[in-house]
């Protein structure tokens, strides 16, 4: 109850920090998508690039976030950007790459070969094939990757407050310093809530942009397998 009271009393600051948090995660997700989706598609076409790219993304993801901030600090300090939002966003973009690239790659790879063959054989060029067939069919899986990245980044962004990026992590960090449980809890609860809401929202978005034909196909497959059981 006292946590709720804390939030009410500091609503202006809490709102500001929440928006900051959303801003950092949102911007990094947009940048990560712009890099990751084309990269994921590209490695389906240039097959020998697939392994190195996926491995690199994999390694990036295994580095603990606090360590990544530490590593980037001296590098970015050279251009006077060692602390603040920029290193936070760079880190979040790097972390997002694995789920986004991997899902995009898998999705495009899993488009039935017959469908691709039919498209090619009918005289679609590469770009038309991608735009009209491969991407629409892959959309659900690509968005699932974005969803994973978004939820994960909300958590990592909370840690970025240690390098002065702002966001809801500030509440947790300052709460710990001041031994102020209501402050810690309000930060923790809001971050969790944000993650849950974004997860739900992305799920809904995924449903809305999935082509109708794919939804029907999926439903029929489910229905058939339920008949077998």
């Amino acid at each position: 109850m006292s946590t709720l009271k804390f939030i009410m009393e500091h609503n202006q600051r809490v709102l500001h920090l929440s928006l900051e948090h959303i801003g950092i995660v949102g911007l990094s997700l947009i940048i990560a998508t712009i890099i990751g989706v084309p990269l994921g598609i590209m490695i389906t076409k240039y097959k020998n690039l697939a392994k190195p790219v996926l491995n690199t993304a994999n390694v990036l993801m295994t580095i603990p976030s606090i360590a990544l901030f530490g590593i980037m600090l001296p590098v970015l300090a050279m251009v006077n950007l060692g602390l603040g939002k920029v290193p936070a966003i760079i880190a979040l973009v790097l972390y997002s790459q694995l789920p986004i690239i991997r899902n995009t790659y898998t999705a495009i790879k899993n488009v039935p070969p017959a469908v691709v063959d039919a498209g090619k054989g009918m005289g679609m060029n590469r770009w038309q094939l991608l735009k009209e067939i491969e991407i629409p069919i892959s959309i659900p899986l690509i968005l699932a990757g974005l969803r994973t990245a978004a939820v994960m980044n909300i958590g990592i962004a909370a840690i970025a407050s240690y390098i002065g990026a702002g966001g809801l992590g500030v509440l947790i960090q300052q709460g710990i310093n001041r031994v102020y449980p209501e402050m810690i809890l309000s930060g923790a609860i809001l971050v969790s809530l944000l993650a849950i809401i974004v997860d739900g929202g992305m799920g809904l978005f995924e449903y809305l942009v999935t082509p109708k034909g794919i939804k029907i196909q999926r439903k029929l497959v489910q229905w058939e397998s339920s008949l077998k059981n």
């Binding site: 039935p112 017959a114 469908v115 691709v116 063959d117 039919a118 498209g119 054989g121 009918m122 005289g123 009209e132 067939i133 629409p136 069919i137 082509p211 034909g213 794919i214 196909q217």
Partner: peptide, 15 residues
């Protein structure tokens, strides 16, 4: 210029 029909049909499920 050529019609193309295959065994697996390959209809585009999103269309």
């Amino acid at each position: 210029r050529m019609g193309y029909v295959i065994q697996e049909i390959g209809l585009f499920p999103n269309k």
